[in-house]
Structure formats: structure tokens, C-alpha cells
Amino acid sequence: MVTMSMSPNQDYAIEARDLSFYYGSFRAVKNVHLKVVPRQITAIIGPSGCGKSTVLRAFNRMNDFVPTAHIDGSILFHGKNIYDPDVDPVQIRRLIGMVFQKPNPFPKSIYDNIVWGAKINGFRGNQDDLVEETLRKAALWDEVKDNLKKSALALSGGQQQRLCIARALAVQPEIILMDEPCSALDPIATLKIEDLMRELSKTITIIIVTHNMQQAARASDQTAFFTMDEDRAGLMVEFGATQQIFTNPKDKRTEDYITGRFG
């Protein structure tokens, strides 16, 4: 049921192996195998409640804060299972950053938003340079360069989200997880984020959860389709090159979903 389009000995940015996820005794996600190709954009699509966000958050242990959550299986990052007891989740999140559904800049200035994460990670370089560099990477520099001391909350939603991306970049992660980053944005802001993702994927691995199938089709290299089983557990139905998933899905359920026949 899991389709692999790559050779098995390829070096993956991160890999979920037989991952099952539980909230208390409820199994929210079962038996996911997902190999994320470095410096590509991997989209996770599927209906509501199929565990897309849960899987995404498993990749940097953001689910640790849910008291009853636990996993089976493993997530390998450079060959190391990030759920091993000797792994520090704080370090994981420094290497695997996250952008959330709703833009959530700190109630501080644009400048401070960028340097905040870098500073707690021991950044000792020139802060002005860091701010300019990351804002340029996030395609936000030209819009805010004269107002760096202004509150981040004064920005528009799309600008706030690009600031959140810039903030994540300032920590220099290897992977950025994006949890429906455009769901609160208008179409123009959405396209800007997609262009930005494309640009960033030259150097960084991106995994994005999206409700928007067009977005997955437009903006991703690989697509994983998730759905729900009869027991309400999410599972991955099909995973492969985006082109193939959208033009020639192997599984009937994938086809039903992308053609809109899914109830």
C-alpha cells in the first residue's frame, strides 16, 4: 500500500518507520512509512482528522506537550531515532523548525522576532546581518526594511507568516515543517508563500500539511495521501512523486479524493 518511487539506499532527510501515534488508548495514526527526500517539498494531504498534522508534529516532537500522546515505531533523523530516550527534544526542534497554521509572531518588534530564536540558540554573530539575510530569504525584506522596530503584529497576515518563516530560518534548521501555513491567508499571500517555499527548497527540506489539493499539486515534489480507516485511525494510502499521485494514482482511494469523489 505504500508506494516508493526512490531507490532504498537514498539518503533521506528524515524517515518515519512504522510510525503509529496514540492519544491515550486511541490510535490516531497507524503504521506510517514515510521517507522524506532532502531539499524537496513533501506535501501531506488528506481529509480532516486523518492525522496529517499529528504526523507532521511527530517529526519535531511537538506532540510531547500533549500529556497522553505517545508513539510506536521510530523517526530516523541522520540514522538516529529522535524518540530514543537519550535524545533532547529541544535540540530536535532547533534542527527541525516549524511554521504554524495561524501566523504566530511574538508580540515584539519585527527585528526581535528574528533574533529571538537565534539568540536562545547561542547566536553570537552580527544581528543586523542576520535580520537582513533571513528577511531577504523570506522575501520580506523590501516590505519591512524601514520598519524593523515596528511591532510584528502590525503586519498583514501574509507578511506575518513570512516573518514566521524568516524566524524559523534564523535558527538555521535542516528541515522546516509547515502545518497548513496558508489556511489563514488570501490567494495572493498564499502564492507568495508557495514561491518562497520553492526558493527555500534549494537549500532546505520542507514538509507541508495542506488541505488545499491545488497547493500540493502546484508546490510540492512528493505527495503523501492520508485517509482514515474504519476504526478512525489515520493511515497513509499512497506516497510518491506529486506528478504521479495527481495524474496516475495507484490507489482507488487516492483517485477518489483528488478527483473530488471523496465524501
Binding site: 519535531n60 511537538m62 506537550f65 529541544v90 535540540q91 526542534r93 532547533r94 534542527l95 523548525g97 516549524m98 511554521v99 504554524f100 495561524k102 504566530n104 509572531p105 511574538f106 508580540p107 529571538w116 530564536g117 536562545i120 540558540n121 514566521c164 524566524r167 524559523a168 535558527v171
Partner: peptide, 18 residues
């Protein structure tokens, strides 16, 4: 204080104390 701010902070590799 909204939960999203805590998530933003944790997501940047901040400890609970930070």
C-alpha cells in the same frame, strides 16, 4: 497568553524555562 506563542517558542528550540 495564547498557546500559539508557546508553540512558536518551542518550535524554535526554546526550553520550557526560556
Amino acid at each position: 497568553v495564547p498557546h500559539s506563542l508557546r508553540e512558536a517558542s518551542f518550535g524554535l528550540g526554546a526550553t520550557r524555562l526560556e
